[in-house]
């Protein structure tokens, strides 16, 4: 019996410790996704000015990404990879919606979001809102971003931001986090298996 208690304690520690330090999908324990946006809903405005409720997209698979259009590296890298995922998915791609939430509402006007996402040939919406509205979504998904003001760079300011793509199932539940290292064919395979 004592051994059984010990085993339970070890198991609990085994589960809790990686949870605290967990960031990469491969490090995370099963169940982390349950902690992400348990409401399974959020509200922002899309690139055409329409109100967007996640809950209106039940039945669709959602790929959620936080970024900004002047992001020169990880955002185009991720979006061009998602474009390849859509190609690999074929007809299944029609029920997959990419949701790009800007963390830079000051510079990312709806027009800019529209042009940007059209460019990458995705079935995508670009979402924006007030800083508080965006922060609420960022917090719900335990994502993070930080404005970095640079004196030396001509960029003025840029953002450090979470680089995962959240895979949300047809019921609004986050079921997987894609890391920038993940290859498009592996991502397509995971989506196909849903």
């Amino acid at each position: 019996m004592k051994n059984a208690y010990l085993l339970i304690i070890c198991l609990l520690f085994g589960i809790c410790i990686p949870f605290v330090g967990c960031q990469k999908p491969e490090d995370k324990p099963a169940g982390l996704e349950d902690a992400l946006n348990p409401q399974r809903d959020f509200t922002l405005h899309d690139q055409d000015g329409h109100v967007f409720h996640l809950s209106n997209h039940r039945g669709q698979i959602v790929l959620l990404f936080f970024g900004y259009t002047s992001c020169p590296d990880v955002c185009p890298m991720t979006l061009s990879k998602l474009a390849r995922v859509y190609k690999l998915l074929g007809p299944i791609g029609q029920k997959v919606l990419t949701v790009f939430v800007t963390v830079d509402p000051a510079r990312d006007t709806p027009e800019k979001l529209r042009e940007y996402l059209r460019y990458f040939s995705l079935n995508a919406v670009g979402l924006t809102g007030t800083k508080d509205e965006i922060d609420a979504v960022v917090d719900a998904y335990k994502a993070t971003y930080e404005k970095v003001v640079t004196n030396s760079s001509a960029l003025g300011y840029m953002f450090d931001h979470t680089d995962y793509v959240y895979l949300i199932d047809t019921q609004g539940k986050t079921i997987h986090l894609f890391h920038p290292d993940d290859k498009s064919d592996d991502m397509a395979q995971i989506i196909k298996e849903l």
């Binding site: 960031q23 990469k24 020169p72 590296d73 990880v74 993070t144 930080e146 970095v148 640079t150 030396s152 760079s153 001509a154 960029l155 840029m158 450090d160 931001h161 979470t162 680089d163 995962y164 890391h179 920038p180």
Partner: peptide, 20 residues
């Protein structure tokens, strides 16, 4: 380009950082 700089991205525990 009006300005040309060298930058480095680094992935710190799921957060993408960019620095000149």
């Amino acid at each position: 380009a009006g300005a040309t700089e060298i930058h480095q991205m680094s992935d710190m525990k799921g957060m993408m950082n960019m620095a000149q």
